[in-house]
């Protein structure tokens, strides 16, 4: 017996779809989709709907807002017009997207050294647009655990460098994120449905610029 739900390429649903299993859309859905599992909009799929699901994978066209309790993935060829809210958002090369992204929950693992950045005031930003200042207040206050800064640390030096090979910038292989998040699906399953309704607002750390286009 087929376990997962598929809406074939000629199928057109107008209305609301609720479910607790994976849904694959190859046809068209107008309305709303609420799933506790994974929604896949295939290449031929067109979804004009508000979407709530645990995971959403888009390869076709989606017009509408997408809220996921785990992840939203836009694969190559995807076209999405709408806003995304999810703890994990992945945009592949070749995906097209217009809208805003809001990372809900904790988001991907925070990095330890970020404390210093968080404390850097938004005031500082924009204040010095046009001048190269002679000195910049160093952001160290919020790093109690950081080693004491050198007082003679140079503040502003920008020059063209012909970098000798030995001085080349170290190759930083960015640490691959542990895929731990994807493993806790079973634990989340039960709560997923409720969470879609009462979603905690993430306090925004900084004022968000909206109007700039």
């Amino acid at each position: 017996m087929p376990a997962s739900t598929t809406l074939g390429p000629t199928i057109h649903v107008r209305g609301r779809i609720l479910g607790e299993e994976d849904l694959r859309v190859e046809g068209r859905v107008d309305g709303a989709i609420e799933l506790s599992e994974t929604l896949i909009v295939e290449e031929s799929g067109v979804v004009l709907a508000e979407i709530q699901a645990r995971d959403v994978v888009v390869r076709g066209i989606v017009i509408g807002n997408v809220t996921a309790t785990d992840s939203v993935t836009l694969d190559a060829g995807a076209k999405l017009m709408g806003d995304i809210e999810a703890p994990r958002v992945i945009l592949a090369d070749g995906a097209a997207f217009k809208g805003s992204v809001k990372v809900t929950g904790a988001g991907p693992r925070p990095r330890a050294r970020k404390t210093s950045v968080a404390s850097a005031s938004p005031v500082a930003r924009g204040a010095g647009r046009t001048t190269v200042a002679g000195s910049i207040p160093r952001v160290r206050a919020a790093r109690p655990d950081a080693p004491p800064p050198q007082e003679d640390e140079p503040t502003v030096v920008v020059r063209r460098q012909d970098v000798a090979p030995a001085q080349k910038a170290p190759k930083k292989a960015p640490p691959k994120p542990a895929k731990a998040a994807s493993k806790k699906k079973t634990a989340k399953k039960k709560t997923a449905k409720k969470r879609t309704k009462a979603r905690p607002k993430v306090p925004s750390r900084k004022k968000r610029k909206v109007s700039r286009r």
Binding site: R88, V101, K102, G107, P177, V210
Partner: peptide, 10 residues
């Protein structure tokens, strides 16, 4: 995957 982004994309 694993990147944090808050804002809009055009």
């Amino acid at each position: 995957d694993g990147a944090f982004f808050d804002g809009s994309v055009d």
